[in-house]
Write a protein that binds this DNA or RNA. Structure first.
Lengths: 223, 223
DNA sequence: ATCACTTTACCGACCGGTAAGTAACGCCGC
DNA sequence: GCGGCGTTACTTACCGGTCGGTAAAGTGAT
């Protein structure tokens, strides 16, 4: 007896996709080391060897999920931001798109970023290199602003880390069903990030539209 | 004579303290679930049962470490900040002291905060309650600023989470031996946090002294 | 008959935790 | 001064359970 219609061997869209999505959510919720292959298998209605027919091993599963997450980052954040020439506008795009990505679907994307300990040496190196490229993309925008005298803080690197932390943290507290919706949160964080590093007089700050009406308090646990 | 060598049975200052500090560092580096009691025991030159003579169990060890971390937060952040009446000055003190605490000694203090999954239900509740109290302390300062019309963002809660993320993230990238020293990082992050949420005209922003000379780029991996 | 897929049964390694024994030390009565 | 004794701080040996992973035998559709 399966869920509603489609008994026995339904028309499984793609079993592999379900496995990766389910595993991503579970690892995001409980941590990589505390999530067993048995639990993942049961969650997708398989036995463990049934799961091993589809995936090569636990490390490969994690690596595939993290690679997928980095793909999304490249496509939805770096891609659009690269088109903008003004470093402040580019910075705004990076922060906003990254924040929106974290509020939409999963959030697993972000948390998985710091499960690098579960990877093999080569896998870890590959992921770390992609993360570093992304970080440099962000820092370069800030460095360009610094040499143009548009930063209110003296150091582009610590500014980049601060912004990254602010954005990444969204995955820890934002809940899709809460009082704040994802788009509002992305807007607030973007405004806070830009205001934190840019000179108050910067044109990239004043062109933002309405933010006078409050949305009241939010949703979930602290940290 | 007696000062240096001391063979066989030295004069062990406090073995328990060494256990907790070592365990904190290891759990911070590898994660709670991936750190075995055997490894902790070996790191302090004991066998596993020898370790169990000093600690009741793995959960209790984690709980003790996290409680200690929260104690430090209360003493060194909340304590001093409570003395300040102006909410902006209080906010500045919270951010700065928390940032300094993360740059000095370990950083384990922060990372351990999100290993709550390893605790029992009652332990988790106790830690979560303390975290919530701390978060509310931070949010209340921001809410006071909001009703006074001094915030440039509409929501105190999302502002509090953004600041918290920015600060917590320090533990992931800052390295004591790197190009930036801890005090500078704490200053930069404080400046970024305050600038991110306060109106540009706020007196709490302009009274900060020198930040004209850059300290150049930083140390470690992205995230 | 073949192939995609899933099952039952099992492996060695390691997990958190414990039972039982012991070496070293301080302290007591005598 | 010394034998007995409790306490501290460990040790060796071992427990049941779970981990990631696999061998081999089906199973149903084509």
């Amino acid at each position: 007896m399966s869920a509603s219609a489609k008994a026995s061997t339904p028309f499984d869209d793609d079993r592999a996709g379900a496995i990766y999505r389910t595993a991503a959510r579970m690892i995001y919720e409980k941590g990589f080391a505390s999530t067993s292959m048995n639990e993942i298998a049961e969650a997708v209605d398989l036995t463990k060897p049934g799961l091993y027919y589809h995936v090569k091993g636990k490390k490969e599963l994690l690596f595939a999920i993290m690679s997928f997450a980095m793909d999304r980052l490249d496509e939805e954040v770096v891609g659009p931001a690269r088109l903008l020439e003004d470093p402040a506008e580019r910075l705004r795009m990076i922060v906003r798109q990254h924040a929106r990505l974290l509020t939409r679907e999963t959030g697993a994307l972000a948390i998985l970023i710091d499960e690098v300990g579960g990877l093999s040496a080569e896998q870890r190196e590959a992921i770390t290199r992609r993360k570093r490229e992304y970080f440099d993309f962000l820092r370069d925008a800030l460095e360009a602003l610094r040499v143009a005298g548009r930063l209110r803080v003296p150091n582009a690197t610590s500014a980049a880390f601060s912004i990254l932390g602010m954005v990444m943290w969204i995955a820890r507290w934002f809940q899709p069903g809460g009082r704040l919706n994802g788009e509002d949160v992305a807007d607030h964080v973007t405004e806070t990030a830009l205001g934190g590093v840019l000179n108050p007089s910067d044109p990239a700050l004043t062109d933002s539209p309405d933010h006078q009406l409050a949305t009241e308090s939010a949703s979930t646990e602290p940290a």
